[in-house]
Each structure stands twice: as structure tokens, then as C-alpha cells.
């Protein structure tokens, strides 16, 4: 028998989960423990995978299941595991004070979220009242906000590893945009992107490790030999 998915319901679920993702992102900004940051990232990625699955289910777009699986497997499973191992090896657990202190950072984050909505507003076509447009509108705002907040984390954090985390959560924003706006990219592309992200994280991991070994510190704000 056929269960006809109700897109309206799907959209509600997706919007809710997207909001949750955003909350997690903001939580990550205030987070001091590296391990917790990694875990927040893992949860966030898992939620994204879930969003993908929901979209796949409600829109009967089977190839998005692949995306959902990949997301869950890679971003919620493999990558956090790798990063945690790295943390274990280099033995640094706590983030030092960010460049901008936490309360102010959270304020900035709020501003960035607002910006995300402002930007997404411009895509909103009132004449196109379909559910899909509304979904796109909402999730795009979240995606842009995720992207900007991830970026902001990278600017703000001193540790090499947290910068990598920032980069990864920034990419989560992209993923959210991709799956919610267009129901995913063509599969080949998607796989390519995942592969690239994986390699990138490995490369960055190697770099983090080497930096830790060479400089006895993971504070990248001390990497200031090359200038002018």
C-alpha cells in the first residue's frame, strides 16, 4: 500500500530540524571544550542526514537517500571519530580564549542569523506560493546563517582544530542548502564533493598534527612568521 507523504508535514519537520541545526551551531560557538565541539558537530551532521532522509522520503527522491547515508556515515561517524582520535593524540582538550569573547560572539552570531534571513528574503517569490518555495526560503536562511557562523568561528577561534571544525560546519551549511533547495545535486557531483571533503579533512588533520608537533602548540594565531 501507498503511504502518500504529506509535503506540508515534511516541511514542518525539516524546518524544525533546520532550526535545531542552527541552535547547535550557535551552541558550538559558545563551546570551550574541543571534544564537545566535535560532538556537537557530529549531532549536527546527523540531523542533516536526517533532513536529507526526510526530504528523500517526502519527495520520493531516492538518490537523496544516498546523500543522507553518506552524510550520516561520513560526517556524523567517520570524521568525528578521526578528529577525536587526533585530539587524543595531540592531547589538547580545551580551547583557549577566542579572539572575541563568548557573549559578544553569540551576539555576532545572532546578527549573522539575521543576515541569513535578509539574504534569503531576496529569493522569496511571493507569487510562488508553493510549499517548496517556502521551504527553500526558510532553509536557505538557515543554511546561509550556518555558513556565516561557521566562517565566523574560523575567524574567531585560535586553535587549528577548531578552525577545521568551523570549516566543516560551514560545509554543513552548504549541504543543507543543497538538499533543501534543489533536493541535492546530481549524484556524481555529490559523491565527488563528499570525497573531496573527506580528503580535505585528512589533509587538514595531517597538518594539524604536524603543526602540533613542530610548534608545540595548536594556536594558529602564533603562526605569524610569514608576513609582508
Amino acid at each position: 500500500m501507498h503511504f502518500v507523504p504529506n509535503p506540508e508535514l515534511g516541511n514542518r519537520i525539516i524546518t524544525l530540524m533546520a532550526a535545531l541545526v542552527l541552535v547547535l551551531q550557535i551552541a558550538a560557538v559558545g563551546q570551550r571544550w574541543i571534544i564537545s565541539s566535535i560532538r556537537i558537530f557530529a549531532v549536527q551532521s546527523f540531523l542533516l542526514g536526517a533532513i536529507a532522509a526526510v526530504i528523500a522520503y517526502f519527495n520520493q527522491a531516492s538518490h537523496i537517500y544516498v546523500v543522507a547515508l553518506l552524510t550520516v556515515f561520513l560526517k556524523a561517524g567517520l570524521l568525528p571519530r578521526l578528529l577525536e582520535r587526533l585530539v587524543g593524540r595531540i592531547g589538547i582538550r580545551r580551547e583557549i580564549e577566542p579572539l572575541i569573547n563568548v557573549p559578544l560572539s553569540i551576539l555576532v552570531t545572532g546578527g549573522l542569523t539575521l543576515l541569513g534571513y535578509v539574504v534569503a528574503e531576496s529569493f522569496y517569490h511571493p507569487e510562488e506560493t508553493s510549499a517548496r518555495a517556502a521551504l527553500g526560503h526558510n532553509t536557505l536562511a538557515v543554511a546561509i546563517a550556518l555558513f556565516l557562523i561557521g566562517f565566523f568561528t574560523m575567524v574567531n577561534r585560535r586553535k587549528a582544530l577548531t578552525q577545521v571544525l568551523g570549516l566543516l560546519s560551514l560545509e554543513n551549511g552548504l549541504l543543507l542548502a543543497a538538499i533543501s533547495l534543489t533536493y541535492g545535486m546530481p549524484l556524481v557531483v555529490e559523491i565527488g564533493i563528499f570525497f573531496d571533503v573527506l580528503v580535505a579533512v585528512m589533509v587538514l588533520g595531517i597538518l594539524v598534527f604536524r603543526i602540533r608537533e613542530t610548534f608545540d602548540s595548536m594556536d594558529v594565531s602564533k603562526l605569524r612568521k610569514l608576513r609582508e
Binding site: L204, L207, L223
Partner: peptide, 11 residues
């Protein structure tokens, strides 16, 4: 310095 450069480049 190579590491520093590589880090900046990668990030």
C-alpha cells in the same frame, strides 16, 4: 614556515 604556509593555504 612551510607548515604555516600550508595551513594558511589550506584553510
Amino acid at each position: 614556515t612551510s607548515l604555516e604556509a600550508a595551513w594558511k593555504y589550506a584553510i
